[in-house]
Structures are given as C-alpha cells and as structure tokens.
Design a binder for these strands. Structure first.
Lengths: 143, 143
DNA sequence: CGGGATCCGGTGCGATACTG
DNA sequence: CAGTATCGCACCGGATCCCG
C-alpha cells in the first residue's frame, strides 16, 4: 500500500480499450499514463486486502471508532486497519476525527466521496451474493 | 492466487455487518464462514492484480486470443495472464476454447456469468473516471 | 502460438511489544 | 483506547527457459 508507487503504480501502461488517451494507430508501444488511467487507479486502490471491507463496514454504521471497526471486521490486524484507514483518509474517502480526551477517542466516517462510491461496491456485493454458489460449484468441478 | 486458499481464504472470519449468518448476540468470537461469505469471495476473487483488467479488456472485444489480451494489457507477464485466465475460467467467468490447429489458437470470451458481472465493474470504472482527479489531488495535499 | 516449470526478489501483512 | 515500531516470512508476480 504505502510502498513504492503502491501496487499498480509500478505498471505504467494502460489498457488500450478503456484508457482512450492513447488509441494511436496500432503502434508497438503503449506509453505511460499511469497517473491518469482511472482503471489502474481503481484497481490500485481497491485491489488491496482490506479497503473495501472497511468501507462496507463503515457504510452501514456511519461513524465508528477504531476498536469498533476492529471488532466488526474481526480478523484484521491493528496495523493493517491503521494503514488502510490512513490510505482511505488520504484518498478522501474516509474522514478521521480525533477527540482530545482521555482515553482518546477517534471517529471514522465515510465522506461524501466515499458514500458516492458505495452503490458500486454494494452492486458488486449483491452480485457476489447472487452468484457465489454457482461460482463455488463451478470451481469445484474444475479439475 | 493458486496458493493455499488463495489470498483472502486465509482469513476465515467474516464481517458482522454483511454476512448476516452470524449476527449473534454480541459474542466475542465471530466464527468461520469463509466459504459462504460472499464479500470475502468477491474480494478474494478481484483483489488480485489483474482479474478486473482482464475482464474489462475482454468485455469490449468479445472473443480474444491469448496474445491479443497480452498486447491489450501491455504490461502483464505471460505467467500472470495465464494464471488469471485459468482462475477466471475455473470460476466460470471466462470460457476458453482451444482449436486443434497448427499453430495453436485459443479463444477467450466472457461467459454469461462473466457478462452479468460487467455492469458493476463498469460502474466502478465510471466512478473512478469521474473522481480520479479529486482523489489524486487529495492524496497530494495529504502530508 | 500458447502456454508450463522453475527460480527468486520485493513486499504485503500478521504477530508481538511498546507508548501517550 | 488508539495507535507506532520492529521483525519475519509467505506469497505475489516478473524473468527466464522449455515444450508441443
């Protein structure tokens, strides 16, 4: 996540099909547009292990504390929860509010940007629910 | 991908919020439902580096050969393209048709199941296109 | 052409311990 | 409570070689 250019960033090229900037003749080399390729940006962001899960959990509580998130997800380490939340914060998907109390309290919630993403995530999740049995059985019968 | 239970599989628990099977009182231990948790299944499947990209490329050509895919994506290694295609095939999202010719020809295309997933992927991609500039700038201004 | 097999480095991520 | 710091390793994925 926080390493290098973070995952996909290492791979500068884009797909011909979707990143239309460089639909040239049909030249040999597709050249780098990594920063501006939205596909790579999505995949980079959500290809990691926990982001979507954190977003999902946040999305049906609206405002959660660190340990609430931790318990809700169950098997994420503190480290990865922290890292994931920081990344989501950096991307503007999640807001982090610190209350100067003792003991400390920190509240996380989705930003508007974050909320605007959720329908698509939920779409995926719904699809997954509808089709997981088929997929699991297909996978089994696949030698 | 092909290791162990493949990525997310290693982490058996589920989220309380979405995998409703185990909304118990509020007991300490959420216990394993990995096989039946659709969220984990989605994330497991698409959390990898290339699956979505391959699906996207396939989705706007309908029928592609191995090397076409390879060129279209540009920076994927043969190995990962093979592995990704095999996984997608095992899951029933992509079909693989071998023509017994010389030189050999193999055609990949989305299955109906695969096609049914694409709207959601495209939703994500559209969101990414619409919001990437905001995100990139947010990330920069984030110390 | 469309892969499979093997080797191997970088890193994602968990476990553990410590702090304000 | 909400983290940070350090350590270690599995595993992801690229490079290379081979094969029908």
């Amino acid at each position: 996540m926080q390493y290098g250019t973070r995952g996909f960033g290492t791979y500068p090229e884009v797909t011909k099909g979707e990143c239309q900037e460089n639909r040239m003749k049909e030249n040999s080399e597709v050249f780098s547009m990594s920063e501006s390729c939205p596909i790579r940006n999505v995949l980079d962001r959500f290809g990691d292990k926990w982001s979507i899960l954190v977003l999902l959990v946040l999305s049906d509580e609206e405002k959660m504390r660190f340990n609430e998130l931790h318990k809700a997800i169950g098997d994420i380490s503190q480290k990865m929860l922290t890292v994931t939340l920081r990344t989501l914060e950096a991307d503007g998907l999640v807001s982090r509010e610190v209350f100067p109390e003792i003991p400390p309290r920190v509240e996380y919630r989705l930003t508007l940007l974050g909320k605007s993403l959720m329908p698509h995530i939920h779409g995926l999740v719904k699809w997954a629910k509808d089709n997981q049995e088929v997929i699991v059985s297909k996978r089994k019968q696949y030698a």
